[in-house]
Design a protein around this nucleic acid. Structure first.
Length: 686
DNA sequence: TACGGCGGCGCG
DNA sequence: AAAGCGCGCCGCCGTA
């Protein structure tokens, strides 16, 4: 098996066996137990464990490594109900879902070795097999290698004894043509029938590996000091061990609750808007075919051939070239937009416009109309995963589906955000931080002038313009009002005087500067973004930096510190190692520098939202008395659901936790805007 | 036929 | 040669 250590024999304990009662008693007494499940699939809301395994240190100081059938789980309820016990998992939320689907609900603390690993080795993969192999030098075969491929078909008539299909889809054994895709369950059944010992051994490996990896990571976290911008403010978080157990471990339970709740989807709404979208796409497609005289694919290399080869346009940039390394002209939205405006009177200008429109609709249709119904549970709720060990900055990521990139605002042509709704007699509570990253920039740099803007509760971009250019803040506010009124046709165009226009344009450009700096943008890119000359961009940046010298110093020291220490860090002391910061290659090094200046801001913003969510979750009354349940986080936004009658109590309470995520002040006020409504897209601020 | 890479684009 | 941080997913294409 590739093991180079002495491993305890795998035990197998079944329901009704003589050993079971003794084992339950022993587990009840344990402070820490590693467990893992073997399930019939990966779907969070419906798959179930068929076997499970555990590992813990017995009285003799020796690890026990045990596989059990799922029907034994009920016997361990006394252990699962212990609030103090630490349950060690690899990918805890997944196993929690599987157990929960059998109505087994673990009350104790959820320790996840993958999350622990992500804190120390954020640049590496965090799967259990990867961790075990890099930390301990252990390897064992994965599920597919042990039990066979899931790709082959399986015969329905064959029952639990799996029979493979030939290439024509006919069962080799019976000639039966009725088949379905092989799932993990089929493989487990096959293993049961053919080699039960292998199954027992394999299942026990995962729990044992989890346990050994846990022991190592637990020690290593304690050796790792946090280095925080504000370390004196949290004397109780001295090491990464402290950080893990006080922050990430409780957060896992919060995320599990979010995933478990999911969001309700209005299936009928999706059905209703589907035909119209299909019609729009078909219309666009036929127009494109007509104009180009071909059955043109709407994306892919054919586009380059058409615009560059056939129409003779000059490409803006080239693609990377893939495996073959053949670079082709890039046909992205920017290019299509350019063609559509520069050549609007030509046939291909119109084609570009139509392609642009079509491709956006196609993407949204595929993602949110076509695939969504298959993801829903019996209550029409979708359960996106909220991954705690993916983003190197410490942010969450969302997948299956990703609800952190649902189209919104103007681009949401078919109001897809409104397909996410509250359940009956409930409202969605949508809470947003305002200008979180800009506030954290002010706090991290301790720039007094910028902090002052937030203390006065000014709009940061208008405040920046006001200070950098000496324009009275009131004028900026007035300009924005006029702009809004003209937009609504309450005022004539003539109300937009040159002065008002100047105020508005300065706000726009300084806003881009603010974002650009966070991303480590250089003046050239800034100029392109703002739509001004490079000289003007340099001038604006200079003015900005002269006004906020501490901000300049902050960005400079972010890169310098990373060069000296090898890593960038956040307010709570999470690190991101950046070996490329000393790369000889300029492009590589510059990228590391941009990452170094972005990490403290983006990473700290992630921590702010994380702490807020923990606070909200641990405010038990919110849940148990007022029925508030969290559903989703979109980086600086927390989406929850609560009964209609409790909205007035829940909203200010959620706001309070968001605005005070830490036990101490960070020197800049944080503010959250909270809206509620029946649909995600319509949650009105109130 | 399945998979991985890539281009492109959605969000913060 | 390249100069915008962090993600995930779609369709397409080349590959085995």
């Amino acid at each position: 098996m590739g093991w180079n250590i002495k491993m305890p024999d795998a035990e197998y304990v079944t329901l009704g066996s003589r050993e079971l009662d003794g084992l339950v008693r022993e587990v009840v007494d344990k402070k820490k137990v590693a467990i893992d499940t073997e399930t019939d699939g990966l779907i969070l809301h419906k798959c179930r464990p068929y076997y499970w395994s555990m590992c813990f240190k017995s009285e003799m100081g020796r690890e026990r490594r045990i596989t059990l059938p799922a029907d034994t789980l009920g016997a361990f309820k006394p252990a699962f109900n212990d609030y103090e016990k630490k349950w060690v998992f690899a990918n805890a939320k997944f196993d929690m879902h599987m157990l929960s689907n059998l109505d087994i609900n673990i009350k104790g603390l959820l320790v996840d070795v993958q999350v622990m690993h992500a804190l120390l080795y954020e640049e590496q993969p965090h799967g259990l097999k990867d961790i075990a192999s890099t930390l301990l030098g252990w390897k064992w075969t994965d599920f597919t290698d042990t039990f066979g491929s899931m790709r082959a078909g399986i015969c329905v008539c064959g029952g639990s004894k799996a029979s493979h299909f030939n290439k024509d889809g006919i069962c080799k054994k019976t000639g039966c043509a009725e088949f379905r895709q092989v799932g993990p369950l089929d493989l487990l059944r096959r293993a049961e029938a053919t080699n039960m010992n292998l199954l027992i051994d394999y299942a026990a490996n995962d729990a044992f590996g989890t346990w050994k990896v846990f022991e190592k990571l637990d020690e290593d976290l304690a050796k790792e000091d946090t280095w925080s911008l504000y370390d004196t403010q949290w004397p109780h978080i001295k090491t990464m061990w402290d950080y893990y157990y006080k922050t990430e471990m409780p957060f896992t339970r919060v995320l599990f609750a979010c995933e478990r709740n999911g969001l309700r989807v209005n299936k009928k709404y999706l059905q209703d808007i589907s035909p119209g979208i299909l019609r729009d796409m078909a219309t666009l497609r036929s127009k494109i075919n007509e104009l180009t005289g071909t059955m043109m694919k709407t994306n892919g290399p054919m586009l380059a051939e058409y615009f560059i080869g056939k129409c003779g346009l000059r490409p803006h940039k080239m693609t990377k070239g893939g495996k073959s390394g053949v670079q082709k002209p890039s046909v992205d939205e920017k290019f299509l937009d350019w063609v559509a405006t520069e050549h609007r009177d030509k046939v291909y200008g119109e084609v570009a416009r139509l392609l642009c429109e079509h491709n956006k609709i196609e993407k949204q249709y595929g993602t949110y109309i076509e695939k969504m119904p298959g993801r829903l549970d019996a209550q029409d709720r979708v359960h996106p995963r909220l991954n705690q060990d993916v983003a190197r900055t410490g942010r969450l990521s969302s997948s299956d589906p990703n609800l952190q990139n649902v189209t919104g605002g103007e681009k949401d042509l078919y109001k897809l955000r409104n397909s996410f709704i509250a359940k009956k007699h409930h409202k969605l509570i949508v809470a947003d931080y305002s200008q979180l990253e800009m506030r954290l920039l002010a706090a991290a740099s301790q720039e007094p002038a910028m902090m002052e803007i937030f203390h006065k509760n000014w709009d940061i971009h208008m405040g920046n313009v006001s200070i950098v250019y000496g324009i009275p803040y009131e004028d900026m506010v007035e300009a924005k009002k006029i702009d809004k009124a003209v937009g609504k046709k309450d005022l004539p165009e003539s109300a937009l005087t040159d002065y008002v226009k100047r105020c508005l344009s300065l706000r726009g450009s300084i806003k881009q500067i603010g974002f650009g700096l966070n991303y480590g943008m250089k003046e050239k890119a800034m100029a392109a973004r703002i739509g001004c000359s490079v000289e003007e961009a340099i001038d604006t940046i200079d003015k900005y930096m002269a006004t906020y010298p501490a901000v300049r110093a902050f960005f400079a020291s972010a890169a310098e510190d990373a060069r000296r220490t090898g890593y960038a860090f956040t307010l709570m002391g999470r690190r991101r190692y950046l070996p490329d910061i000393i790369a000889r290659d300029d492009y590589t090094r510059f990228r590391a520098e941009r990452q170094a200046s972005n990490m403290p801001i983006q990473g700290t913003a992630a921590e702010v939202c994380k702490m807020a969510m923990i606070n909200i979750y641990e405010d038990v009354e919110l849940r148990e008395k007022y029925g508030y349940e969290m559903c989703l986080q979109v980086h600086d936004e927390i989406v929850g659901e609560c009964p209609d009658e409790h909205v007035d109590i829940v909203v200010p309470r959620v706001r309070e936790w968001m605005e005070h995520p830490f036990p101490t002040d960070i020197g800049v006020p944080l503010t959250a805007e909270i809206g509620y409504g029946d649909e995600w897209g319509n949650a009105k601020k109130g």
